[in-house]
């Protein structure tokens, strides 16, 4: 016996594993861009850190 959700007459959209990989890449990119305080890339990311510095503060992410 299936119990339908009244609003669920829509067919689910097929979401491939590749799409979830893209989500992971996007999340990692957000992290790198906004949170490279040296936790992961150490000193190599100094330029990146300073370049996106205003953006990080403006978007409310912790920084020094």
């Amino acid at each position: 016996m299936s119990v339908p959700i009244p609003t669920t007459t829509l067919a689910p959209v097929r979401v491939s594993a590749l799409a979830w990989f893209a989500v992971a890449v996007a999340a990692a990119l957000i992290y790198l861009l906004l949170q490279e305080n040296g936790a992961l890339l150490a000193g190599a990311a100094d330029f990146m850190h300073e370049f996106t510095h205003d953006g990080r503060h403006a978007l409310g992410v912790p920084c020094h």
């Binding site: 689910p12 959209v13 893209a22 996007a26 990119l29 300073e50 953006g55 403006a58 978007l59």
Partner: peptide, 27 residues
Amino acid sequence: GGMLAAVVVALCLAVVLAVVFAAVRHR
């Protein structure tokens, strides 16, 4: 850099939102 960061972050969030939306749209 701050403005560019906003654009890239918005694009990344858009990818996340789009995939999550596609996955849960019917619910």
